[in-house]
Write a protein that binds this DNA or RNA. Sequence first.
DNA 1: GCCAACGTTGGC
DNA 2: GCCAACGTTGGC
Length: 149
Amino acid sequence: MNYYLMKSEPDCFSIDDLKKKKVSSWDGVRNYQARNFMMQMKRGDKILFYHSSAKEIGVAGIAEVSKEHFPDHTAWDPKNEHFDSRIKNGDPRWQMVEVKFVKKFPEIITLEKIKQTKELKNMSILQKGSRLSVTSVTQKEFEKILNME
DNA sequence: GCCAACGTTGGC
DNA sequence: GCCAACGTTGGC
């Protein structure tokens, strides 16, 4: 099993939104590296659900891959905010996965706390200039975060 | 293939 | 709202 971290702006889509919907496709990723991480995800892989650009920044809960990658059709929809005018209708360049709600932490595990934890200092989100919305984390990092709950 | 200009991300 | 860091674009 592999572990990942996915960022979302809670004003746009939060852990509560996922809790309400139970499952959701993760559309709108328009970065190749982030897409590549999604393309290697397997059903059952665990995801740290991270709130970015928010009042409280940090890991808000856990999700799980419920469907492996498939074409992100929002890229073909001119009315969608993530429409990609450079590609043809039906071009599978952009892919998404479907994720399932697992749990919401009683309190957000803040970026500040993560920064203070030496076992987590190698996490991609802490690296300078890291803006990737989908990154991988190690099992140890994942479990460490769970234990900070 | 280089690289300047531009748009975006995301913490502060 | 600021701005550093990054990815992408497009002229050459």
